[in-house]
Amino acid sequence: MAKAPSLKDVAKAAGVSVATISRLLNGSLVLPDETRSRIETAIRDLGYVPNPHARRLSRGRSDMIGLVIPDIANPFFAMLVASIEEEAEKFGLAVSLNATLNRPGRERKYLGLIEHHHVDGLIFVTNHPDDGELAGLINRTGKVVIVDEDVPGAIVPKLFCDNHQGGYLAGKHLADFGHKKVVFVGGPEEMISTARRHAGLEQGLRERFGEEVEIPRYCGEYTVAAGRHAARRFLDEKLPASAIFASSDEIAIGMIEVLYSEGVSIPDRVSVVGFDDVGPLHLFSPPLTAVRQPVRAIGARALSLLLQTDWQQLETLEREELLPVEIVVRSSVAPPVIEKKRRS
């Protein structure tokens, strides 16, 4: 079997050094047209195929980015992964996918991928509050774009949906139907998604009803199990509101499952608005009104930030970028029971 031509063979045929060809191939050297033509002819005639691994080592790059997410089974994160994969392919980049199960220890481990030069940068998603350790590690590591949920104190680009606007759209929609008392079901209180969605909901309701507004607040996790727990609490408290703002698809699914099992009709007895709108909410009975995050746009923009950021000038950059959301109105909101009686 014939031996594959080497870089040394090409150098000999072209009459130049191995170092010259290596620098040309990794883009660090500009040569006269005549010399470049000789090298390209030698490569073509010999059938030389550059070793991609060797080229990456010579450039100090891996041509791979890391993506760290809490849970691949969650439809929101699955769609985010797909959008980043599609965008990375356009740039000839590979994606190393790492699921942390939302555990800080695994997050710290995957941040080490940059320090050990396994990836050129990370798109990082967490789904829990940080005690400061994660922020410190991110600042030391660099080349990280934080997406979806904040890590306070991290001095890197951050990309979120406009959580406040999402809460506001939900509140305004519920207020339009006459709801003054709305249960808010969110993640941990310390997370910006929870705080901003709650603040937006309150603004949307108070613009219509002022001091008449009441917003009981249930905080837990963005999971189906947390939604089930919230629904049982809602039932134990004898349905303390005429509407629910479930601030994730997963929470909404868990709540609806329990409410249906207990014979609580939506929207006749209680109205429900969700958040994310990445699941098949249009197939629910009734179809669920929800605030829609631009998940694919978030993925594409996250990669763009990773590739375009000047990592030597982080102190001068705008660190937080918000992408707009919209409310998709379906059939899960109706006037409160008392309002229906007044109208009839």
Rank of each mutant, 00 (worst) to 15 (best):
H128T: 00
D131Q: 09
D131Y: 10
G132V: 13
E133P: 07
L137K: 10
V144R: 05
V147Q: 04
P152D: 09
P152G: 06
G153Y: 15
G153N: 13
A154N: 12
L159D: 04
F160D: 03
C161R: 10
Q165S: 14
G167D: 06
D176E: 02
H179K: 04
V182E: 01
V183N: 00
F184W: 01
G187Y: 00
P188F: 06
P188H: 02
E190A: 02
I192E: 05
T194A: 08
T194W: 08
A195S: 11
A195H: 06
R197Y: 08
A199R: 05
A199V: 00
L201A: 00
E202I: 02
E202N: 00
G204K: 07
E211T: 13
E211D: 15
E212F: 12
E212Y: 09
P216S: 12
E221A: 13
T223G: 07
G227L: 08
G227C: 13
H229Q: 10
H229S: 08
A231K: 14
R233C: 01
L235H: 11
E237T: 09
K238P: 04
K238N: 14
L239H: 06
A241S: 11
S242N: 08
S242A: 12
F245I: 10
D249P: 07
E250Y: 01
I251S: 05
A252Y: 08
A252N: 08
I253T: 02
G254I: 11
L259N: 15
Y260K: 15
S261Q: 15
V264Q: 11
S265V: 12
R269W: 14
R269Q: 09
S271R: 03
V272Q: 05
V272R: 05
